[in-house]
């Protein structure tokens, strides 16, 4: 049971029903839709909703993972398992120039790495496959420029977002008309909060990457953030020594850019209890949001999700 939203005239509806309606509407009007699958908890919920929306059929579109080559190993395992279980086609795309140039977050910095391996890679992949409707798992409670974004969000040719000229979006009537070259990003879980996501994962028993739950893991403290050492590519500085800590992750991305939090929450229930009492937002562990002022909005304008 997902939470009901009481409303005059609308009677009551749940976030789940709203999301399923959005997913179906996008698919019904799209020419060539795709779901961006980032393997995180939000993607997991979005995928689950898509499977419900089209049950007993498999969702009639592929999953696409834009890979940077720096995801946690546990994420790759989870990705392949979920693709197989859902019966959906999985497309994996890596920016070939970035890969051959060996772009990485340590040498090139988080900003450049993200731009080349995520933003540019995403645009290349969308152009390559000619997708017109792209599902993303962004939520409005994540970040202040996302709080401003429509559920059906338009991108001009070149994938640019114009935050000052968004189409009005009334009721659940989504204007899905676009010209050649234009695309729509669709965010079915716009109105979910972090807590909604966790509760839904618990209620629906949705499989998630184990890194979300606490365990002893090798970490290094850099700039006040716990970075987990997931493979041998970590460039240790003089005197740096991994130590074992009980940690978990509130968000998952590239492992060098995802900070862990110290936690004993080994179960979903315990995670939810911590979320209810959290004093920091989940994006605090994302090292890429804060590197320049207004950085999320800028990245979004340039085509980032």
């Amino acid at each position: 049971m997902s939470r009901t939203i009481g409303g005059a005239g609308f009677s009551s509806f749940s976030l789940e029903d709203e999301s399923i309606e959005i997913i179906r509407e996008a698919v019904a009007t799209a020419r060539n839709p795709v779901m961006l699958y980032s393997i995180g908890k939000d993607s997991s919920v979005m995928l689950h909703l898509a499977r419900k929306a089209f049950y007993p059929a498999a969702p009639p579109f592929p999953l696409m993972h834009v890979d940077t080559g720096w995801k946690f190993r546990a994420m790759y395992t989870h990705r392949d398992r979920m693709a197989a279980e859902s019966g959906m086609k999985l497309l994996v795309y890596k920016n070939p120039e970035g890969e051959s140039a060996g772009i990485n977050p340590f040498t090139h910095g988080s900003n450049y790495h993200t731009d080349v391996m995520k933003t540019q890679a995403l645009k290349q992949a969308l152009d390559l496959y000619d997708f017109d409707v792209i599902f993303g798992g962004a939520r409005r409670d994540e970040e202040k420029s996302r709080a401003k974004e429509r559920i059906f969000s338009f991108r001009s040719p070149g994938h640019r977002w114009e935050p000052k000229a968004q189409r009005p979006e009334l009721w659940s009537l989504y204007n899905t008309s676009i010209h050649p070259g234009e695309t729509i990003r669709v965010f079915p879980i716009s109105n979910w909060t972090e807590l909604d996501i966790w509760q839904y994962i618990r209620d629906e028993q949705i499989a998630i990457v184990p890194l979300y739950l606490s365990a002893e893991r090798p970490v290094v403290n850099r700039g006040g953030q716990w970075i987990m050492i997931d493979d041998e590519r970590f460039p240790f500085e003089a005197g740096e020594e991994p130590s074992m800590k009980r940690v978990r992750f509130r968000t998952l991305g590239c492992w060098p850019l995802s900070a862990a939090i110290e936690s004993d929450a080994e179960t979903l229930e315990a995670v939810i209890a911590e979320t209810l009492h959290a004093s920091c937002s989940e994006r605090q562990g994302r090292l890429i949001d804060s590197d320049v002022p207004g950085s999320m909005e800028k990245k979004k304008q340039e085509g980032y999700f």
Binding site: G7, R202, I272, L276
Partner: peptide
């Protein structure tokens, strides 16, 4: 925690 979660899911939402 479970009690908290249950209480949470019974809250109404006002838009």
């Amino acid at each position: 925690s479970i009690a908290l979660i249950e209480a949470e899911s019974h809250k109404e939402t006002l838009r």
